[in-house]
């Protein structure tokens, strides 16, 4: 009887683990999207296949996003020439505010506007900021929810390891 119970528990654990893994995007193909950017051109994720891409979801009302952006910009400036790209996806309803903040912070990476929230829904963005790192094959490798000082070092390690692959 005991053995039967433990077997059931084991099966349940396996199912629970697999369902949790299914909820997580890591290891899955990054959903493709196209959005209008701050420069006016449309950018599509799949056109960056072959590069390591970081997708950073942010909003003007999010304090940690403001804190994180200069670090992300530094990463972009440093690794852009070796096959790294960064797409900042702003989810504000009003893109004007986002443009002001970009200018304010002097951000150089492309910022896309997802006013219809289609892309943030696609990536199941439930916190702010959310940072997704996609490898050269277009697979989601890392997903980070929120930001705390020091996360940029973790991003750096992950980007460097993906660039080396």
């Amino acid at each position: 009887m005991k053995l039967k119970n433990s077997l059931i528990a084991l099966v349940f654990c396996v199912f629970a683990a697999s369902s949790l893994a299914a909820g997580n995007m890591e290891g899955q193909q990054a959903p493709d999207f196209a959005l209008k950017s701050s420069t006016g051109e449309n950018l599509r994720l799949s056109e960056y296949r072959g590069d390591v891409v970081m997708i950073n979801f942010w909003a003007t009302w999010c304090g940690p996003c403001r804190q994180e952006m200069p670090h992300l910009d530094a990463l972009y400036s440093r690794y852009q020439r070796v096959g790294f790209n960064l797409l900042g996806v702003n989810i504000d309803d009003d893109s004007g505010r986002a443009m002001d903040m970009i200018e304010d912070l002097g951000v150089n990476f492309p910022v896309l506007f997802d006013a219809r929230k289609e892309v943030s829904e696609l990536y199941d963005v439930s916190a702010m900021p959310v940072t997704v790192i996609v490898d050269r094959e277009g697979t989601v490798r890392y997903v980070h929810h929120g930001y705390k000082p020091g996360y940029e070092d973790m991003y750096l390690d992950q980007i460097r390891s993906l660039l080396r692959e």
Partner: peptide, 22 residues
């Protein structure tokens, strides 16, 4: 071309943004 929006019987079914390459 920047984008194409398609409605069938009054319902939006597609809104496609074209990149420079496309």
């Amino acid at each position: 071309l920047d984008s194409v929006n398609i409605k069938i019987d009054g319902k939006e079914v597609a809104n496609y943004l074209y990149t420079e390459r496309e």
